[in-house]
Design a protein around this nucleic acid. Structure first.
Length: 180
DNA sequence: GTAGTGATTTTCT
DNA sequence: GAAAATCACTACA
């Protein structure tokens, strides 16, 4: 998924961004995964088939966007943490007026959803539709790195965060010795 | 430039 | 009633 393009045809216009940072949340054995304690109203999309969105509300102000990856009854998702704005940058600025640098419009899971205008009404969308989807533009493979996941209190020892180590739009600096 | 802390509300126990 | 897959502001160097 790293290096692919996220496209969102919003009511206000088309926006797209190159994905540069993701985290994996896999199954009921992963203590940090929302699905670890069973199915609830919130995490229900993860228990459905792959290829759907999962948006959840967190910390009273922010939303985070995930892509469901596995088949039915096998909860797993990728959290989109950061991306480089490509199209619709003006629209993103309207949603995040306090952010000045273009590279900072999408460099965090909360900011990514805010700049795109995504909320929980966008959860469980079919990613093969024409509203929210991925595009593979066949760009050269990226130099990627990995690190422990960020912002969680359990399962933080698993190195399931992956990022494009050449990007200037990461949510955290590249740590020494972590690139491949 | 980095480090520390308040904001704010849904969701689950 | 407490915690949460976060962000932005403030203080200080």
């Amino acid at each position: 998924m790293l290096g692919k393009y996220l496209v969102y045809n919003s009511p206000a216009g088309r926006m797209s961004a190159r994905i540069v940072e993701i985290e994996a949340y896999i199954g009921q054995d992963d203590p940090a995964c929302h699905a670890a304690r069973g199915k609830t109203d919130r995490n229900a999309p993860m228990f459905g088939p792959g290829g759907f969105s999962y948006v959840y509300f967190i910390y009273g102000m922010y939303n985070c966007l995930n892509f469901v990856t596995e088949k039915r009854k096998h909860p797993a998702a990728l959290l989109l943490r950061a991306a480089e704005p490509k199209e619709g940058i003006d629209l993103m600025r309207l949603n995040s007026p306090r952010i000045r640098a273009t590279n900072e419009l999408l460099n965090g899971p909360g900011k990514l959803c805010r700049s795109f205008g995504l909320t929980t009404v966008h959860t469980a969308l079919d990613l093969t539709g024409n509203q929210l989807y991925l595009e593979d533009r066949n760009e050269p493979s990226v130099s990627f790195g990995y690190s422990p996941r960020i912002g969680i209190r359990v399962g933080a020892d698993l190195p399931w965060r992956f990022f494009d180590s050449d990007s200037k739009a990461l949510s955290r600096p590249v740590e020494a010795g972590k690139t491949k």
